[in-house]
Amino acid sequence: MVKSTSNSKSPSADGVQEPARRDFIVVATYAMGAVGAAAVAWPLIDQMNPAADTLALASTEVDVSKIAEGQAITVTWRGKPVFIRHRTPDEIARANAIDGAELRDPQEDEARVQRPALLVVVGVCTHLGCVPLGQKTGDVKGDYDGWFCPCHGSHYDTSGRIRKGPAPTNLEVPPYNFLSDNVIRIG
Protein backbone atom coordinates (compact mmCIF):
# COMPACT_ATOMS: atom_id res chain seq x y z
CA MET A 1 0.00 0.00 0.00
CA VAL A 2 2.85 2.35 0.77
CA LYS A 3 4.35 3.33 -2.55
CA SER A 4 7.31 5.51 -3.26
CA THR A 5 6.25 9.10 -2.85
CA SER A 6 9.47 10.97 -3.41
CA ASN A 7 7.96 13.26 -6.03
CA SER A 8 4.37 13.44 -4.85
CA LYS A 9 2.83 16.73 -3.91
CA SER A 10 1.68 16.21 -0.38
CA PRO A 11 -1.48 18.17 0.36
CA SER A 12 -0.80 17.97 4.11
CA ALA A 13 -2.40 20.13 6.69
CA ASP A 14 -2.97 23.28 4.70
CA GLY A 15 -6.20 21.89 3.28
CA VAL A 16 -5.76 22.62 -0.41
CA GLN A 17 -7.21 20.33 -3.09
CA GLU A 18 -10.74 21.61 -2.46
CA PRO A 19 -12.19 20.12 -5.68
CA ALA A 20 -11.68 16.60 -4.36
CA ARG A 21 -13.90 17.32 -1.38
CA ARG A 22 -16.70 18.71 -3.48
CA ASP A 23 -16.64 15.78 -5.82
CA PHE A 24 -20.08 14.29 -6.45
CA ILE A 25 -19.23 10.89 -5.02
CA VAL A 26 -17.91 12.46 -1.81
CA VAL A 27 -20.97 14.63 -1.28
CA ALA A 28 -23.25 11.70 -2.08
CA THR A 29 -21.44 9.51 0.44
CA TYR A 30 -21.83 12.01 3.25
CA ALA A 31 -25.47 12.52 2.25
CA MET A 32 -26.08 8.77 2.42
CA GLY A 33 -24.53 8.71 5.86
CA ALA A 34 -26.91 11.44 6.99
CA VAL A 35 -29.93 9.64 5.52
CA GLY A 36 -28.91 6.41 7.23
CA ALA A 37 -28.51 8.15 10.57
CA ALA A 38 -31.94 9.74 10.22
CA ALA A 39 -33.50 6.37 9.40
CA VAL A 40 -32.00 4.87 12.54
CA ALA A 41 -33.31 7.72 14.68
CA TRP A 42 -36.96 6.86 14.04
CA PRO A 43 -37.14 3.50 15.88
CA LEU A 44 -35.29 5.06 18.80
CA ILE A 45 -37.93 7.79 19.06
CA ASP A 46 -40.97 5.69 18.20
CA GLN A 47 -40.23 3.22 21.00
CA MET A 48 -41.52 5.85 23.44
CA ASN A 49 -45.00 5.72 21.88
CA PRO A 50 -47.51 3.35 23.53
CA ALA A 51 -46.55 -0.28 23.05
CA ALA A 52 -48.85 -2.89 21.52
CA ASP A 53 -49.93 -4.27 24.91
CA THR A 54 -50.70 -0.77 26.20
CA LEU A 55 -52.88 -0.05 23.17
CA ALA A 56 -54.66 -3.38 23.52
CA LEU A 57 -55.66 -2.60 27.09
CA ALA A 58 -57.29 0.65 26.06
CA SER A 59 -60.87 -0.36 26.93
CA THR A 60 -62.63 -0.92 30.24
CA GLU A 61 -66.03 -2.52 30.91
CA VAL A 62 -68.18 -1.23 33.76
CA ASP A 63 -71.42 -2.48 35.29
CA VAL A 64 -73.40 0.72 35.90
CA SER A 65 -76.54 -0.90 37.33
CA LYS A 66 -75.34 -0.68 40.90
CA ILE A 67 -74.85 3.08 40.99
CA ALA A 68 -77.73 4.55 42.99
CA GLU A 69 -79.39 7.74 41.83
CA GLY A 70 -77.34 10.74 42.98
CA GLN A 71 -74.24 8.57 43.44
CA ALA A 72 -71.06 8.47 41.38
CA ILE A 73 -68.27 5.95 40.90
CA THR A 74 -64.74 6.35 39.64
CA VAL A 75 -63.23 3.74 37.34
CA THR A 76 -59.83 3.55 35.73
CA TRP A 77 -59.48 3.84 31.98
CA ARG A 78 -56.03 4.13 30.36
CA GLY A 79 -54.60 4.94 33.77
CA LYS A 80 -56.92 7.89 34.25
CA PRO A 81 -60.02 8.24 36.46
CA VAL A 82 -63.38 8.21 34.74
CA PHE A 83 -66.36 9.68 36.61
CA ILE A 84 -69.66 7.91 36.11
CA ARG A 85 -72.55 9.74 37.78
CA HIS A 86 -76.13 8.55 38.02
CA ARG A 87 -77.80 11.97 37.90
CA THR A 88 -80.99 12.91 39.67
CA PRO A 89 -83.85 14.49 37.65
CA ASP A 90 -82.98 17.76 39.38
CA GLU A 91 -79.35 17.60 38.22
CA ILE A 92 -80.45 16.79 34.68
CA ALA A 93 -82.89 19.69 34.74
CA ARG A 94 -80.19 22.08 35.93
CA ALA A 95 -77.83 20.91 33.23
CA ASN A 96 -80.48 21.66 30.62
CA ALA A 97 -81.66 24.90 32.18
CA ILE A 98 -79.02 27.05 30.55
CA ASP A 99 -78.24 27.67 26.92
CA GLY A 100 -75.17 25.58 26.17
CA ALA A 101 -74.20 27.84 23.31
CA GLU A 102 -73.33 30.64 25.68
CA LEU A 103 -70.76 28.73 27.69
CA ARG A 104 -66.99 29.04 27.41
CA ASP A 105 -66.86 25.67 25.68
CA PRO A 106 -70.30 25.69 24.01
CA GLN A 107 -72.05 22.34 24.25
CA GLU A 108 -75.58 21.17 25.05
CA ASP A 109 -76.03 18.61 27.80
CA GLU A 110 -77.70 16.15 25.44
CA ALA A 111 -74.60 16.12 23.27
CA ARG A 112 -72.62 14.88 26.27
CA VAL A 113 -74.74 11.91 27.34
CA GLN A 114 -76.18 8.81 25.72
CA ARG A 115 -78.81 8.36 28.44
CA PRO A 116 -79.67 11.51 30.39
CA ALA A 117 -79.36 9.75 33.75
CA LEU A 118 -75.83 8.55 33.12
CA LEU A 119 -73.00 11.04 32.78
CA VAL A 120 -69.60 9.62 31.87
CA VAL A 121 -66.63 12.00 31.86
CA VAL A 122 -62.86 11.70 32.17
CA GLY A 123 -62.07 12.95 35.67
CA VAL A 124 -59.13 15.07 34.66
CA CYS A 125 -59.34 18.85 34.87
CA THR A 126 -58.73 20.31 31.42
CA HIS A 127 -56.60 23.04 32.95
CA LEU A 128 -53.47 21.18 34.09
CA GLY A 129 -54.55 17.63 34.75
CA CYS A 130 -55.59 17.46 38.42
CA VAL A 131 -58.51 15.25 39.49
CA PRO A 132 -61.50 17.44 40.47
CA LEU A 133 -63.46 16.89 43.71
CA GLY A 134 -67.17 16.08 43.76
CA GLN A 135 -67.35 12.30 43.53
CA LYS A 136 -67.93 11.61 47.20
CA THR A 137 -71.00 12.82 49.05
CA GLY A 138 -69.06 15.12 51.34
CA ASP A 139 -66.90 16.64 48.65
CA VAL A 140 -66.90 20.28 47.67
CA LYS A 141 -68.78 20.29 44.37
CA GLY A 142 -68.20 23.88 43.35
CA ASP A 143 -70.65 26.67 42.60
CA TYR A 144 -72.53 24.64 40.00
CA ASP A 145 -72.93 21.43 42.01
CA GLY A 146 -70.84 19.38 39.61
CA TRP A 147 -67.12 19.17 40.30
CA PHE A 148 -64.54 21.53 41.70
CA CYS A 149 -60.85 21.34 40.92
CA PRO A 150 -58.85 22.22 44.04
CA CYS A 151 -55.63 22.94 42.17
CA HIS A 152 -56.62 26.20 40.51
CA GLY A 153 -60.31 26.59 41.25
CA SER A 154 -62.19 25.43 38.18
CA HIS A 155 -65.94 24.87 38.66
CA TYR A 156 -67.80 22.30 36.54
CA ASP A 157 -71.57 21.92 36.34
CA THR A 158 -73.74 18.80 36.54
CA SER A 159 -72.90 18.10 32.93
CA GLY A 160 -69.16 18.39 33.54
CA ARG A 161 -68.98 21.66 31.61
CA ILE A 162 -66.58 24.40 32.66
CA ARG A 163 -68.43 27.35 34.18
CA LYS A 164 -65.86 29.27 36.18
CA GLY A 165 -62.10 29.18 36.66
CA PRO A 166 -59.07 28.76 34.41
CA ALA A 167 -59.91 25.48 32.63
CA PRO A 168 -60.40 26.10 28.90
CA THR A 169 -62.74 23.23 28.00
CA ASN A 170 -65.41 20.92 29.43
CA LEU A 171 -64.48 17.62 31.06
CA GLU A 172 -63.86 15.21 28.22
CA VAL A 173 -66.50 12.60 27.43
CA PRO A 174 -64.66 9.36 26.60
CA PRO A 175 -65.88 7.15 23.76
CA TYR A 176 -68.17 4.50 25.25
CA ASN A 177 -71.09 2.33 24.30
CA PHE A 178 -73.71 0.20 26.03
CA LEU A 179 -72.88 -3.48 25.69
CA SER A 180 -76.16 -4.25 27.45
CA ASP A 181 -78.61 -2.32 29.58
CA ASN A 182 -76.28 -2.51 32.53
CA VAL A 183 -72.76 -2.64 31.11
CA ILE A 184 -70.87 0.06 29.29
CA ARG A 185 -67.53 -0.30 27.58
CA ILE A 186 -65.29 2.73 27.71
CA GLY A 187 -62.73 3.06 24.90
Binding site: D46, Q47, A52, D53
Partner: peptide, 28 residues
Protein backbone atom coordinates in the same frame (compact mmCIF):
# COMPACT_ATOMS: atom_id res chain seq x y z
CA UNK B 1 -33.76 1.00 30.11
CA UNK B 2 -37.01 2.87 29.46
CA UNK B 3 -38.84 -0.44 29.11
CA UNK B 4 -36.75 -2.75 31.27
CA UNK B 5 -37.70 -3.72 34.83
CA UNK B 6 -34.85 -4.67 37.16
CA UNK B 7 -36.67 -7.14 39.36
CA UNK B 8 -36.27 -10.91 39.43
CA UNK B 9 -40.01 -11.42 38.91
CA UNK B 10 -40.32 -9.04 35.98
CA UNK B 11 -36.91 -8.77 34.28
CA UNK B 12 -37.40 -11.70 31.87
CA UNK B 13 -40.98 -10.67 31.19
CA UNK B 14 -40.03 -7.04 30.57
CA UNK B 15 -37.40 -8.13 28.04
CA UNK B 16 -40.04 -10.25 26.28
CA UNK B 17 -42.33 -7.23 26.27
CA UNK B 18 -39.54 -5.26 24.60
CA UNK B 19 -39.21 -8.03 22.00
CA UNK B 20 -42.95 -8.33 21.35
CA UNK B 21 -44.84 -5.17 22.20
CA UNK B 22 -42.57 -2.12 22.41
CA UNK B 23 -42.38 -0.35 19.05
CA UNK B 24 -39.22 -1.58 17.30
CA UNK B 25 -38.15 -3.02 20.66
CA UNK B 26 -36.88 -6.23 19.02
CA UNK B 27 -34.66 -4.17 16.73
CA UNK B 28 -33.22 -2.06 19.51
Amino acid sequence: AMSYTAHVDYAFESVERIMRDVNHGWLI
